[in-house]
Design a protein around this nucleic acid. Sequence first.
DNA 1: TTGTACGCGTTATCAC
DNA 2: GTGATAACGCGTACAA
Lengths: 325, 325
Amino acid sequence: MITMAEIARMTGVSQPTVSRVLSGNTSVNPEVRERVLECARAHNFQPNALAKSLQGGGTHLLGVLLTDISNGFFAELARELEACANRAGYSIILLNSGRDEARERDCIDVVRRYRVDGIAAVPIRSDSSLWTEEIHRSDVPAVAVTLHVPGLDSVYVDHAEAGGLAARHLLKRGYDDFLFVGPPKDEKGAGFFLELTASGVPAARCAAVRPDDAGLCEELRRRCAAEGRRTGIFATNDLDALVLLNHLRALSIDVPRRAGVIGFDDIPVSRYLNPSLTSISQPLGEMAEQAVARLVSRIERRPCSGVLDAPLHASVVGRESTGAL
Amino acid sequence: MITMAEIARMTGVSQPTVSRVLSGNTSVNPEVRERVLECARAHNFQPNALAKSLQGGGTHLLGVLLTDISNGFFAELARELEACANRAGYSIILLNSGRDEARERDCIDVVRRYRVDGIAAVPIRSDSSLWTEEIHRSDVPAVAVTLHVPGLDSVYVDHAEAGGLAARHLLKRGYDDFLFVGPPKDEKGAGFFLELTASGVPAARCAAVRPDDAGLCEELRRRCAAEGRRTGIFATNDLDALVLLNHLRALSIDVPRRAGVIGFDDIPVSRYLNPSLTSISQPLGEMAEQAVARLVSRIERRPCSGVLDAPLHASVVGRESTGAL
DNA sequence: TTGTACGCGTTATCAC
DNA sequence: GTGATAACGCGTACAA
């Protein structure tokens, strides 16, 4: 690829003059200007952003660290982050950890080598001190997205509150027996049960099971066989909810009559499912916006009021799987 | 971030010695070695990949240019590309054009500024001479993925053949009236109709309509109302097929009895739909593998036998929407 | 084994 | 208005 020095040689001026012409800050002889511009255009010149960054202007690169972009929710998030970054004049380097914690730490080093100006990360876990330490040690402005990482700028929805929303929605739709399908010690699950308890649902009517639990189908069959009961199921994300709907179908359990299902993330396909899936929607665009805005503030060393910790609010999108459409 | 020069100063050696220690090629005094390594570790040193690239070793960055990563198919593709790139020692810069052709051309310049060693692109159209010219002018090894771009290394499945597969599948499942839902002049559509005609289906039993056509539902109603006929519908991608299934449901047209639907891309959710969606699957992993392999070959100036143009083969994944499960 | 000198492509700071 | 010159962080050739 052609460089400024070569253009200088070809047009008979000095390299700094070429720089002046192409950055357009200072004034140059209009005649020289034209000659240089034409030569640059003819040879499809593009300035070397890397060489620029050596002078200390920053790379205008943001590292986007994800668990797995093939999840529709993260794909949308990535698109929003890229769009926001773009508007702010940044491009993104994308890395997937594949939920491997060692690889997740490596990713930090990779983007550090490229001297990214900032990092937007969806951590695997919000309580991994190893990762949090590594991020702090990295000396690069970073913001956690979708999860609240203590001590780190975080943009996320209040998961406990969201769990409460799911509980209230299911109660309102007339369900009286409850199941949370997700990992143990999930904040969403905790908020779900807290709200149920507060609403007077007895503990015996509340249960939790992991999505990959071999006994999941057995559990579904048993609970939904209980005559006169309607089971409200809250899944930790829409992909798990999708699988759940298939299990229920295989078990001939009518949705939403005998069992209601509410997911989390509201991925784009959810509204097109059959039955369409009730889900909890996170404000993706707003999250991306806030994350990038905070990164840019840090990058430009604008005074920031402490660690960003302003939980956003999720909302229920009612559809057929809970009889809400 | 700390540099080799600073480590050199702190440990009382010269900068090249630090370089030698950290790259580990040449032998250095073990004592010095330890001192330098410890200092580097203590300050969390990472070499500046950009400064390295200035010497001409390349950036080890690949540009991945997509239309829209929020489409599950492209998200999966991006993940595979990232994984392959990683294995080959490359990281990726990801850009979405959002199907805007001007933006699509800008994307090329962006990655050029970052001196990516190669470009893997999913073009908006395979016949945009403006874009193809720009890619060639870019002077960066590039490969088109999923689409065949004449004159450019391309990794793709034979769309006409895939259309034929869809036709044969629908014929085999007993459908006798056919509709293609996709853009006009689509290769898949052409292959679809070619196979139908070859199989003796009269032209009157073949029709095409755009996915966003306002008269789509009317067309569905009319065709499926024809007594004694079963309509086989081929959608240009799974997302459109999803919408189609919803229209059919709204129209109370039984799938797969009165109408059969086959999509394209086999996105991950297709198998979980109700009815689960028959689709044409592209060998994603293989495509990513071949694309990156070809890029790396070009980057390393290995002799390549002309322009890569080896169409891969798609396959039908039969599911409930065509009564194949 | 180690230090000096230089170059990569660009911007910034000087003189002129 | 314009041309030297230095600087950024690193690798490499060469000298010691």
